[in-house]
Design a protein around this nucleic acid. Structure first.
Length: 596
RNA sequence: GGUCUGGUAGCUCAGUUGGAUAGAGCAACAGCCUUCUAAGCUGUGGGUCAUUGGUUCGAAUCCAAUCCGGAUCACCA
């Protein structure tokens, strides 16, 4: 149980005992004490003065006095400034906390709750390679799943691959026209990039044809419709849907190239999935649900046989759920897939990691599922994230301003190699160890950078300046970890004592206490991160912890502490800090090196 | 136009259900390595929290209006 919650409880009890008034613990506001005043945590009294008809001073003295008297092991003293009751937590309390947790490698990790979470993330198209925006998606999805795992959930990570449709056919047509039988192997190109190149070639050829048609007197609209390459593409989609063997064969082959490319990228960045759904298998889903919805009266059928739902009473629009030819539309497929997922896994909650341009779609999806009273409905949550933009604006593939995922990952690894070599601290590492270290640091920097920002907000990526290895970054936290481990290794050599020293009357130094207070907040932060589907809470926390520890580290010696008692205390402090950093970074998908 | 969303230091971002003099990092400037890893630490400067009004003991936070961005409003996925 967290300190702040204990304070809330104690204050609630105090008010009940002193004034016979019921105030729930959650109704007590507890903040960290402002650094200029004495105290660790502060109870804000303003909310109670009206109800209890006492001045803040009297109230503070009575509650503060009661707390110190009733819980001497927790509160050592108090003071009142205006309506703020500042509480000093007893050093013995903090020391006790440290003694209990210092060797607990699972500090902050909760027991299994039996609840199940599904996270759908990544969801690539198979016509081009991944870019920076996909990385944000992948890192968020993986991290959120891990955060829930730590909160006691069983998790299922899924991916829906958008493997069919016009965009795929574009790459296929371009390959038929310009490929001359080339393959990723024959050109020594990564499969997803290989196919992506033909997607670009398609667009170039299409643009040219449209220009020629316009020059021949067509309107822009006519030209776009009549361009031969576009007509061929649409014909190919029809052939695909009709099951034309040659088209299906080509489609399978080109997709397999893309998957082999994706596999490499996923392996590097650490994305993995328990279940992959393919849209080519799910795009016909939902018909049964439409039929059920019609009998339930949730949907209505028009004269042309198309089926609709009217959401105007919910502040939304009318939505089509089935075309007049009886085929499903996007939203219907999603409803069908939601049901299929629920039937297969029965998760309590299902988080969709999807860009914020689909906010409306996701709102409609959940609402329709609720109206249909599908069991999956209430568990649907949209983890909506903002776009990654460049200083010059949005990334546009046409203008060549897309930051390719493989490129940026490689660049980060290269930079981390340079920095590491400049510093020259790991010259004794083997080739493999060095390679691992560069990857750990490079990916750490990239993941931390993309996860440290509130997912809901769009973010700006400046290739020159954004990637830094100092300050609020992954490598800063990794470095703090490596430095602690270095100290601990030295302590092992000389043999450190255990915690059997009597700390009852031990008084903590300011910087020691700062670290312990921060450590104690970790479990609460993990809970908040899950509640809000927000890994940035973890990133901000772990940076703050590393910073606080570093301030302590430069000021006070651990291995060469003033006396044995201090040495043991600080060793356990460092041990727990390292452990929390490791756990927290893991929640972000970031590894921590023993040395760097 | 309707709906949603954002505007905080030169730049990138924090800021819990309203709480004390609005915080970090980067950049700038000034310091700290014969002592546990300087990818570190300490300090300085830097703000009309878009604007205006309202709610109250108290507003960056809540409400209203205005200004400026972005997303969305497909029988595409």
């Amino acid at each position: 149980m967290s300190v702040t919650f204990k304070i809330k409880q104690a204050a609630s009890t105090a008010i009940k005992e002193l004034y016979q008034v019921d105030i729930a613990p959650s109704g007590v506001l507890v903040n960290a004490t402002n650094p200029e005043f004495e105290g660790d945590y502060t109870v804000v009294l303003f909310a109670f003065i009206k109800q209890l008809k006492k001045s803040p001073e009297v109230l503070g003295n009575e509650i503060g006095g009661w707390l110190v008297q009733q819980h001497p092991s927790m509160f050592s003293s108090f003071n009142i400034i205006k309506g703020f009751l500042n509480l000093v937590i007893a050093d013995a309390y903090w020391v006790n906390f440290l003694q209990e947790q210092h060797s607990n490698h699972k500090f902050g990790i909760k027991e299994h709750t039996g609840k199940k979470l599904m996270v759908e993330y990544s969801s690539p198209n198979t016509n081009k390679p991944l870019h920076l925006g996909h990385l944000r998606n992948n890192f968020l999805g993986w991290s959120v799943a891990e955060i829930y795992k730590t909160n006691g959930y069983d998790t299922v990570k899924t991916c829906i691959v958008n493997d069919r449709g016009v965009h795929i056919c574009k790459s296929m047509i371009a390959w038929q026209m310009f490929g001359n039988g080339a393959t990723p192997q024959s050109t020594n190109t990564k499969g997803d990039h290989f196919v992506g190149d033909y997607y670009v070639k398609f667009n170039d050829a299409y643009k040219l044809e449209v220009e020629q048609l316009i020059a021949a007197g067509k309107t822009k609209e006519e030209a776009e419709k009549q361009a031969p390459i576009m007509k061929a593409t649409q014909q190919m989609l029809l052939d695909w849907e009709a099951g034309n063997p040659a088209v299906i064969e080509l489609w399978k082959e080109m997709n397999s190239w893309v998957y082999s490319g994706f596999d490499v990228t996923y392996k590097t960045i650490g994305s993995d999935f328990d279940k992959t759904y393919y849209e080519s298998n799910t795009y016909l889903l939902g018909k049964k649900i439409v039929a059920e919805g019609l009998t339930k009266g949730v949907f209505t059928q028009e004269e042309d046989n198309s089926v609709w739902i009217d959401l105007t009473n919910d502040g939304l629009d009318k939505k089509i759920v089935q075309r007049k030819d009886g085929t499903s539309v996007y939203i219907t497929q999603d409803i069908g897939l939601a049901e299929q997922k629920f039937e297969e896994y029965g998760c309590d909650k299902s988080i969709y990691v999807i860009g914020d341009e689909q906010n409306y779609h996701m709102k409609v999806l959940k609402l329709i599922c609720q109206k249909l009273q599908l069991p999956s409905a209430d568990g649907i949550e949209h983890l909506s994230y903002g776009m990654v933009e460049l200083p010059t604006g949005k990334m546009k593939s046409r203008e060549g301003t897309v930051v390719d995922a493989d490129d940026i990952v490689n660049e980060m690894i290269t930079i981390s190699k340079q920095r590491t070599e400049e510093l020259g601290k790991v010259k004794d590492f083997s080739e493999d160890e060095l390679k691992n270290l560069y990857t750990t640091i490079g990916l750490g920097a990239l993941k931390f950078f993309l996860l440290r920002v509130d997912p809901k907000k769009k973010m700006i990526f400046n290739p020159e300046e954004s990637i830094d290895f100092h300050g609020f970054t992954g490598p800063f936290v990794q470095y703090t970890y490596a430095r602690i481990k270095s100290v601990l290794r030295k302590l092992e050599d000389v043999g450190s004592g255990n915690l059997e020293v009597d700390f009852n009357n031990h008084s903590l130094l300011k910087l020691e206490k700062d670290v312990i207070i921060t450590l104690e907040q970790f479990p609460t932060v993990i809970e908040e991160a899950a509640q809000e589907n927000d890994p940035s809470k973890i990133a901000i926390y772990v940076f703050n912890l590393a910073k606080t520890f570093n301030s302590f580290y430069v000021e006070h010696a651990i291995a060469k502490a003033e006396n044995e008692e201090k040495k043991i205390l600080r060793t356990s402090l460092a041990t727990l800090t390292a452990s929390v950093i490791k756990t927290a970074m893991h929640l972000l998908g970031i590894a921590v090196p023993e040395r760097m």
